[in-house]
Design a protein around this nucleic acid. Structure first.
Lengths: 276, 276
DNA sequence: ATAATAGTGTCTATTAGACAATATCCT
DNA sequence: AGGATATTGTCTAATAGACACTATTAT
């Protein structure tokens, strides 16, 4: 039986040759355009005899730019390198992608690797933060030791989870830096470029995607959300105009009123929550 | 002398340890935060004795979704696979990234690889088309043979260069498909996902970035540019409202009037060109 | 003359920026 | 009472969608 899934949703299982969602065989799919349908035995033989090519391969890592907002200030988590090269320089946390044996066992996806690394670095459980791929940095000589390709990601830690994050626990190994102070920092490898791209990305994306909600607690006030926008954009927003945008999101059902109020210095404020 | 470049622009040459733009040494940079400055000899020894780790590595390829607009229709270039797996299926063109020996010689960047592949596939000289990284697909088991990580790109071929593109030359090896017909096609690997993401990307990006100019000839009329927008978005634009947007770009200096007029069926139209 | 396309103008609704005014809370 | 913040409202400018209208060219 062929796969009837939408063309962009088909997901072939390489061991069975079946689509993972509908269990249709990819071999039954071909022929619509009159081309040759491959012989099953042929392909099985081919895969068995597939020669592990001898070409050099790169190491592949995931790097993560971890953002949070502390005291209305956008910050990133950096790690001081203990070893060479760039010993003593500050670096974005990262790690290798597990590729299994590279053949029968193919290991984890890059997103899984990034999730693992993010959890290790922050101490937060997997899935508690927004995490997304940013860009892949694949210039030669990024690392003097060997060819390393880095799939860079960025993560957003909500401010209320910060109390659980163990950054700075073990004597300045990891530390939060305000993005405004990054220019006075010596960054390892091409991590300056990666950081700049990550900052540009969230500054652009906050205008059309609901990423700000990943930086505030589950419930938040208008002013708290505005503080996140101001921290990310590095600019001031008119409170009343921002409220109007907020109110539109409320009308559109993007935001829902929550029970309770919050008071800081002046009048107490209504609390809201992000829907789904 | 330390490097005085902007933090996000620093580019360390791994052989010399110098910043490529200002020739400042990265070793003179450290210490601003009071951390240990690494001994030069120490690091040289370290790099020499650096052990080539034995962990399995993935193969890394670049894939390119090549777009063009033919007869007001958005099309992508696909290749029919000759060998297993997915023999006879249609696939996005791609190739391996040259990583040199992986150590002293680290080969080419992924963008260089993509440029090379794009030139091979279209027959156009390098640099004649817009080319940008899209997303890196790194799920395990994407390829049943071995762990392959694909750095996907997308390219935009201007319609006037289409006459030089040798797609379909050698008996349906390569062929342009309208994006509206992709759902009736059997696509290899996860190339359906890649295509869908590429389409989403250009549909979103055309609203805030000048990518449409990469799909028209150097000089174009308002209607020609509108046809590109309509092809990409798959929707109709009101000619007079589109003209207003066009006029604003003219006022902002994004577009400049060019000499000459172009006539098709009715009144002849003014010709413009994109600035830089 | 007519069909077809290029180009202009108008009305309305939505949205953003600037800013005044009122409401509520804490000390 | 007074400082601070929340909340509402108003005026203006920019932009987009719908649509009527005029201009120019080929046949």
């Amino acid at each position: 039986m062929p796969c009837y899934c939408d063309w962009s949703d088909r997901r072939w299982n390489p061991n069975t040759g079946l689509c993972e969602t509908c269990q249709g065989s990819y071999k039954d799919c071909s022929g619509k355009l009159g081309h040759e349908v491959s012989d099953t035995l042929d392909e099985a033989t081919f895969l068995k005899e597939y020669k592990k090519e001898e070409y050099p391969k790169p190491s592949v890592t995931v790097d993560i730019v971890i953002f949070t907002v502390i005291d209305s200030d956008l910050k990133v988590l950096l790690i001081q390198r203990k070893g060479h090269p760039f010993k003593g320089f500050w670096a974005i946390p990262g790690g290798f992608v597990d590729v299994g044996d590279g053949y029968q066992k193919q290991g984890e996806s890059s997103l899984e690797a990034a999730n693992r690394e993010l959890a290790e670095e922050t101490g937060l459980p997997i899935g508690s933060c927004f995490l997304e791929q940013l860009y892949t940095f694949a210039e030669p000589n990024r690392d003097p030791r060997t060819r390393v390709i880095s799939i860079a990601h960025y993560a957003l830690v909500p401010s209320n989870l910060m109390v659980f994050v163990h950054a700075g626990d073990d004597a300045a190994q990891a530390q939060w830096f305000p993005v405004s102070e990054l220019n006075s920092l010596d960054l390892a490898f091409d991590h300056g470029k990666i950081l700049q791209m990550a900052i540009n990305r969230i500054q652009g994306k906050i205008d059309y995607a609901p990423i700000a909600f990943s930086l505030v607690p589950q419930t938040f006030t208008v002013a708290e959300l505005r503080a996140v926008y101001e921290a990310v954009k590095g600019d001031k927003y008119d409170p009343s105009n921002f409220r109007r945008r907020f109110h539109r999101m409320l009308q559109d059902g993007v935001i829902l009123p929550a029970t309770g109020k919050r008071t800081t210095n002046g009048r107490s404020a209504q609390v809201y929550r992000f829907k789904a």
